[in-house]
Design a protein around this nucleic acid. Structure first.
Lengths: 218, 218
DNA sequence: GCATGATTAAAACATTTGTTTGAAACAGTC
DNA sequence: GACTGTTTCAAACAAATGTTTTAATCATGC
């Protein structure tokens, strides 16, 4: 009836869920195993028994979170290999926005990842290898198609950073946005945002692509 | 010879400097008054004597940091009221990038502010009122001039978010960028980045402005 | 020189926190 | 039902941390 289905008695699983919430809310240092245990209806010793120590639990939570969130919103959600680069970019942006903004489901995945990106622990390498690397790679291919296949690397990198930056901003600065503009991010707002970022970026890339091919010709 | 000039013996001042470094590096929770005191060559009791408690010291550090960094890189650095909107936007972006990326000077200001933005304490309101509010306001004016004075508010907001997002990305994701692309942000790289973001945004805004005025005509 | 107030110093205090311990409860097997 | 390995529990431990205390030191005005 509330999150955990069918009275799942597996303490280990409950600990991971609870730890996700608490780590996301308070950070690794701020989270206490006592609070985690209490939220999971488990004994204080449960964390050490099942995971060895707090840090190992954190890794487990992060790993768990990653696969789950990428499964729900894959970068090519709703497009096929036959789609145009524009459609693929739009899909990428849309997925990314939903991944980091959707508050209608266990919300700690995005916050946890943002935390790890902003202030990495030793787990960042794993995060890059499994998630961020492929993600940036995918976007690179799409952007290269949009500009031209011989576009110089620096321009391509700058463009994918511009796109990623626009999307992630709404998560990183959400408290400021909410205080300054009283904006909330429901699904329909996210849709409009994704359209905006897509148009903004396509327009920009077209311009820069023209500049680039011109300078390449010189 | 090293940061503090003329053997400034004021313990209070040394504490603020040291606390800035430590808070930026470890976060509020992770920073210990013992480490701060040690870095400041002060006694453990000094923090409580001079500031009451750890939290009050944090507020003081934040306040101090804000005024200092905005003084060094004001948003209209190098432009006059007669400059074109394009020039003003470029100056804004350049300043913002230097503000968050310049590692050649006491570097904790930006990290401290990023921390507060990503996970606010009670001090965020003050930060918004004194710094972020005016900053966003200034950018809004510039962007409005670029699109058209009757541009609809949502479009303008989305555009300033797109610009802020592109800039802040390089700070928030610096560890990922560094691991994926082995990029370091020296002054000349920052200059090139600011030019890229300026072009990217101007191109995009032009396009969207045309769309906007067309739809406004309908 | 000394009295006064501000500052510093070292030690101690009270909590909090991650972890360990040892016994109890449980589950499955023969 | 006794044995075995696993899981849970309450209590305790050791280290760390913010804060307080009490005395010493310093600076300044008389």
């Amino acid at each position: 009836m509330e999150g955990t289905d069918k009275k799942c008695n597996d303490t280990r699983e409950r600990l991971i869920q609870a730890a996700g919430e608490v780590f996301a809310q308070r950070g690794f240092k701020g989270a206490t195993v006592r609070e985690i245990s209490r939220c999971a209806n488990a004994n204080i010793a449960a964390v050490n028994y099942h995971f060895g120590d707090k840090e190992e639990l954190y890794y487990e939570v992060l790993k768990n979170s990653l696969s789950s969130v990428m499964k729900k919103y894959p970068p090519d959600l709703g497009v096929t290999p036959e789609s145009t680069p524009e459609e693929r970019l739009h899909a990428f942006i849309r997925s990314l926005l939903f991944r980091v903004l959707d508050e209608s489901r266990p919300t700690w995945h995005a916050r946890l990842m943002a935390r790890e990106i902003a202030e990495p622990t030793a787990a960042l390498d794993q995060l890059i290898e499994n998630i961020l690397g492929p993600l940036y790679g995918y976007l690179t291919v799409v952007v290269k198609q949009l500009i031209s296949d011989e576009a110089n690397d620096e321009l391509v990198h700058n463009c994918i950073f511009s796109i990623m930056g626009q999307c992630l901003f709404y998560h990183n600065s959400r408290h400021v946005i909410s205080k300054l503009y009283h904006k909330k991010f429901g699904p329909e707002v996210i849709e409009r945002l994704s359209t905006h970022i897509m148009r903004f970026s396509i327009g920009a890339i077209r311009d820069l692509g023209i500049l680039d091919t011109k300078s390449a010709k010189v």
